[in-house]
Amino acid sequence: MHEMSLAEGVLQLVEDTARREGAKRVKLVVLEIGRLSSVQPEALTFCFDVVTRNSVAEGAALEIVDVPGAGWCMQCAATVPMAELYGSCPTCGSHQVQPTGGTEMRVREIEIE
């Protein structure tokens, strides 16, 4: 969903940081994208290439760190792996599962020179 806007959000954060650090070029951008964040890494990579044209991050490599989904199941009182947001607990089948990991969409770090 809306990967183009997200790519622009990434570029803004990268450009702000590059400006603050006085960087001439951004070589690498590392993102953390959770499996429950409804972001398609392939689509984001495509959009990132498009939005970074003519910017300080032009040609920068994009590394996407996959964060597995996890949730707290109220019935089991335990952390369980989750394949989809609002999905059921793989152990007991309950839908009372609060996502605790895998919803992140973050820019972790960039490499500049």
Binding site: L6, G9, V10, Q12, L13, V14, T17, E21, A23, K27, L28, L31, E104, M105, R106, V107, R108, E109, I110, E111, I112, E113
Partner: peptide, 23 residues
């Protein structure tokens, strides 16, 4: 960087750790 520091590359990593939607 027109300089050489032993053990340092001329490029560096900068931590951002910000949510993409933070703006």
């Amino acid at each position: 960087a027109r300089a050489h520091v032993p053990g340092m590359s001329q490029s560096r990593m900068v931590q951002i750790e910000q949510d993409i939607l933070s703006k």
